[in-house]
Design a protein around this nucleic acid. Structure first.
Length: 287
DNA sequence: CGATACACCTGTGTGC
DNA sequence: TGCACACAGGTGTATC
């Protein structure tokens, strides 16, 4: 579910509830998500102060004053939502303003500021781990990630260098987190349509000027999606429970049979399968 | 190395 | 109403 814009939206939503706050209580309601939780995770979180909430690719990183960083991935169906009034947490005190735990609520963090942060994930493709803050980027899940698409290291020059000689379809290559980190199925489809590049085009056969356009369109679609609070199709919610609304701005994703929105383009949006995943594109204006 | 298939898991929509 | 099947914002692992 969540790609970079959704994860960034969740991170921003969690900041007021978590940053600078102590974790007063941690409830771990099952032993694992995609992988087992780290040893004594509840104990290692309880009492820790969240110094900073960061994002790397589709991961949220919570730097703790204990010297550890909590690493969070939402998988396909994960949510992080805030509940509760802004009343201070008192251990042992009854808090009637928190709703009862729902199905698939796997981790519950009670912040000293009174907010409750709940991780809910029906499919359990999500993950959490604890790692020393000083070596967080060396974590196996983060070590091989490519550059942030909104950062300075991502450019047409970088893409030209990394795509040289590659024969695979550009759609599949852009989904590879080692090439660029944070894109997923929605925003790859949308960026390729905006850049007018056919999803089956070999990565190594895209002219430099078109790579310039591609980097520009990747950045703009991500920025616009973040401004819209992400895209809500099924599971995704912002941290406050609200829906994102960028799905209304989709040009191709999940729009099979609809007219291409490119001005004067007579194309009809098509769906095809690449690497087992749906690709939406316009066969007329994307070459 | 690169490209592909499969695995993990639950929920929802569709067609018979 | 039941049931089978396809499909869903991801990604590590195994296999050529």
């Amino acid at each position: 579910m969540p790609e970079l814009p959704e994860v960034e939206t969740v991170r921003r939503g969690l900041v007021p509830a978590m940053e600078g706050q102590r974790i007063a209580g941690a409830e771990i309601r099952r032993p694992d998500l995609r992988w087992p939780f780290p040893d004594r995770m509840a104990d290692r979180l309880t009492g820790a102060r969240v110094e900073r909430l960061r994002r790397r690719s589709k991961y949220i990183l919570a730097d703790l004053d204990t010297g550890e960083t909590l690493l969070i991935h939402l998988g396909m169906s994960g949510r992080m939502t805030i509940s509760g009034l802004a009343a201070p947490y008192v251990p042992g005190q009854f808090h009637h303003h928190h709703p009862a735990a729902e199905k698939h609520d796997h981790v519950v963090l009670d912040m000293a500021g009174g907010a409750r942060v709940t991780f809910n994930d029906p499919r359990r493709f999500g993950a959490m781990d604890l790692v020393a803050t000083t070596s967080a980027e060396l974590h196996p899940l983060l070590a091989a990630l490519g550059p942030e698409p909104l950062g300075n290291a991502f450019s047409a020059e970088y893409l030209a260098d990394r795509l040289a000689g590659r024969k695979g379809p550009i759609k599949a290559l852009l989904l590879d987190q080692k090439l660029v980190a944070g894109l997923g199925n929605i925003y790859v489809c949308e960026a390729l349509n905006r850049a007018r590049i056919h999803p089956e085009r070999a990565g190594g056969r895209i002219a430099r000027a078109r790579l310039e356009r591609l980097t520009t369109e990747i950045r703009s679609v991500l920025i616009e999606a973040i401004a819209a609070g992400g895209s809500s199709l099924r599971d995704y919610r912002q941290a406050d429970g609200e829906l994102g609304y960028f799905q209304h701005a989709f040009r191709v994703y999940d729009r099979e049979g609809a007219p291409c929105p490119t001005p004067a383009c007579p194309g009809i949006i098509r769906r095809m399968v690449q690497g087992g995943r749906s690709t939406y594109y316009c066969p007329v204006c994307q070459r």
